[in-house]
Design a binder for these strands. Structure first.
Lengths: 198, 198
DNA sequence: ACCTGAACACCGTTCAAGT
DNA sequence: ACCTGAACACCGTTCAAGT
């Protein structure tokens, strides 16, 4: 039967989960779908476009809910949902970073927009809010890509030689600390004066 | 005459500058050096290792000076030197990000160490200082990769349709804003109480 | 010690031609 | 409209054999 766009994305996501980004090739994907490599180019202009669609699939859970908590909490919720989504697929952070850089993911653009809204609610003006949102996004992508590559590196091999404190080995605590730095920075720049009632 | 490790790195850096990361291939590099592809593998274990050496070459100017300004200024100086170095080569930010992720650049490790020292001087304890340093590094790499890809995208084509404010179009001002967020966040977390003398 | 030649096992993309 | 087959122009890496 016919090959549909969504079949391709689904199989690509599965291939990513099972073998990682390096083995997610157009030729292998075609083989797995029992079509010729050229067939994929009827549904996608190029590989970047396909990877963007996979990125959107992975990020779907991260842009599902919409709550109305105070802005600090909202940033934490958005970012931890994003991190969870990235960690749920092999090389997820690397894939989404690449798709973001290439401007091929609408889901990551949505995340960026929500972070900008939260920053606006924090009291930043439009231009500042957008910059703050990007700063937060760079952090989440950078941190999570790093975390994931370490996770996958010692998936087999040395069972990580037990750290000394929570901040040395609990990735979620480490993640929250860096994010807290940014949230505090945003609060300090706020004109609403949440953190600086002068 | 003999091929030396440094000849390879120099030619690789030149190839990167002239044609970008996608065209920096082992085969092309070998061709340009008038050797067979296999020859490179006598001097480097693999491509990642070679790219790490190129990253270190690019970052050399960024780890040259050592000044003793107050920590806030030191973070700004380190980061703007890093950004300048990244922007000085085509795809420099992308290359260094990849080498950092792969743990193949000693220069970026040095930058990280200096940021950690500055964070310690800001009054953070060891574990916090390291996390703060990583957070700052993720920001600089993310911001600059983004900036560079836009720069290279509209290098030819539309001469960018003049923005409205400094914060909309001056990349250095945008860069400084995000960095300022992080510096303020670090100050807020400081036990020395620079920003919070309670 | 250092390098060549040739191979191995792949890539992304295009495009005439088929149905 | 949707796909095949085959080609084009490449990759990174290995390794026997040469000097």
């Amino acid at each position: 039967m016919q090959l549909h766009r969504c079949d391709v994305v689904t199989k690509a996501t599965q291939l990513l989960d099972d073998y990682g980004l390096a083995d997610l090739t157009m030729r292998r994907l075609a083989r797995e779908l029992n079509v010729s490599p050229g067939a994929l180019y009827w549904h996608f202009a190029n590989k970047q476009e396909l990877l963007g669609a996979v990125a959107d699939q992975i990020l779907a859970p991260a842009i599902a809910p919409h709550d109305f908590a105070p802005w600090e909490q909202r940033i934490h919720v958005i970012c931890s949902a994003l991190r969870d989504a990235l960690l749920s697929s092999t090389d997820g952070a690397e894939l989404v970073s690449a798709s973001f850089a290439a401007g091929k993911s609408v889901a990551v653009a949505e995340v960026l927009a929500r972070l900008a809204t939260a920053s606006t609610d924090a009291g930043l003006e439009h231009a500042h809010a957008n910059l703050a949102a990007r700063t937060v996004l760079y952090y989440v992508l950078g941190f999570t890509a790093d975390e994931q590559s370490r996770l996958q590196w010692d998936a087999a091999g040395a069972e990580l030689p037990v750290g000394q404190s929570v901040l040395s080995d609990d990735p979620s605590a480490r993640f929250a600390f860096g994010l807290g730095l940014l949230v505090d920075g945003i609060a300090a720049h706020s004109t609403a004066g949440v953190g600086r009632p002068d």
